[in-house]
Amino acid sequence: MKARRTPYQVFRAVALALVVVSLLAPLVWMVAASFKTNVDIYDTGKAFVFTPVLENYSKVLDQANYFQFIGNSLWVAFAATVLSLILGVPAAYSMSRFNMRKSALVVLMARVIPGVSLLVPWYYVFSNLKLVGGFSVLVLSHMFVSLPLVVYIMMGFFDGLPLELEESALVDGLTHIGAFRRITLPLSAPGIATAGILSFIFSWNNFMFALVLSGADTKTLPVAIFDFVGYASIDWGGLMAASTVVTLPIMVIALFVQKYVVSGLTAGATKG
Rank of each mutant, 00 (worst) to 15 (best):
V31P: 01
V31M: 00
A32R: 01
A32V: 05
A33L: 03
A33Y: 03
A33D: 07
A33I: 01
S34G: 06
F35Q: 03
K36D: 06
T37G: 08
V39L: 13
V39F: 11
V39A: 15
V39I: 14
D40E: 12
I41P: 12
Y42S: 15
D43C: 03
T44D: 13
K46Y: 08
F48L: 08
V49D: 09
V49E: 07
F50I: 04
F50H: 04
T51S: 10
P52F: 05
V53S: 11
V53E: 14
V53R: 07
V53F: 12
L54Q: 10
L54S: 11
E55C: 02
N56T: 09
S58W: 15
S58F: 15
K59S: 15
K59G: 15
L61K: 04
L61Q: 05
L61E: 06
D62T: 12
Q63E: 15
A64V: 15
Q68S: 14
Q68D: 14
Q68N: 14
F69R: 06
F69T: 06
I70M: 11
G71M: 05
G71L: 08
N72L: 05
N72Q: 05
L74C: 11
L74V: 14
L74F: 09
W75C: 11
W75G: 08
V76M: 02
F78P: 12
A79D: 10
A79G: 07
A79W: 12
T81Y: 09
T81W: 09
T81V: 07
V82P: 01
L83E: 05
S84H: 01
S84W: 00
L85P: 04
I86C: 12
I86R: 07
L87Y: 02
V89H: 01
P90Y: 09
A91L: 06
A92K: 01
Y93V: 02
M95F: 09
M95P: 00
M95L: 09
S96Y: 04
R97Y: 11
F98P: 04
F98S: 08
F98H: 08
N99A: 13
N99M: 12
M100W: 13
M100Y: 13
R101A: 09
S103R: 08
S103K: 08
A104K: 13
L105D: 10
V106Y: 02
V107F: 00
V107M: 00
A110T: 10
A110I: 05
R111Q: 14
R111D: 10
I113G: 03
P114E: 10
G115L: 09
G115P: 00
L118V: 01
V120F: 04
P121V: 00
W122I: 09
